[in-house]
């Protein structure tokens, strides 16, 4: 069965690269350009994994993360947070808000691809 990944990122070229990696790894990829879009997308369809950028228009990654964790439907959704600011404080905050992984840009596509696979396979399959 195919797992779904929601990519939340405002930088089109980065979205393009993520789409390529995730599709290659066998995921269904959905894309949101800002925080609001992301929340609407999750409302619409609960993904297995969210790749969430922190610097987003309208609503930043932290609040989106908080919203996902506050939503009962999304108990098992995995979250990988992306940040272009390599600040320890941001990482700590992300982990405290319930992110599973924290990746600093620029990231390695190889490591990120492997990380996504590991996280998704460790989680119980969501009954459809």
């Amino acid at each position: 069965m195919t797992h779904t990944v929601l990519v939340v990122e405002d930088e089109p070229n980065i979205v393009l690269s993520l789409q390529f990696i995730l599709k290659q790894a066998g995921f269904m990829v959905r894309v949101a350009r800002d925080g609001e879009q992301a929340l609407r997308a999750i409302d619409d369809y609960v993904p297995d994994l969210v790749v969430l950028d922190i610097m987003l228009p309208k609503q930043d990654g932290f609040s989106v993360c908080e919203a996902i964790r506050g939503n009962d439907k999304c108990r098992d959704v995995k979250i990988i947070m992306l940040s272009a600011k390599s600040r320890e404080a941001d990482k700590e905050r992300a982990m405290a808000l319930g992110a599973d992984e924290f990746v600093t840009k620029p990231f390695s596509t190889r490591i990120l691809g492997q990380m996504v696979k590991d996280i998704v396979s460790s989680s119980p399959t969501i009954p459809q």
């Binding site: 930088e11 070229n13 980065i14 690269s17 993520l18 990696i21 272009a84 600011k85 390599s86 600093t104 840009k105 620029p106 990231f107 390695s108 596509t109």
Partner: peptide
């Protein structure tokens, strides 16, 4: 700086 770098490295 990291944003373009990310694209560069990724692609």
């Amino acid at each position: 700086l990291r944003t373009p770098l990310t694209s560069l490295r990724a692609f």
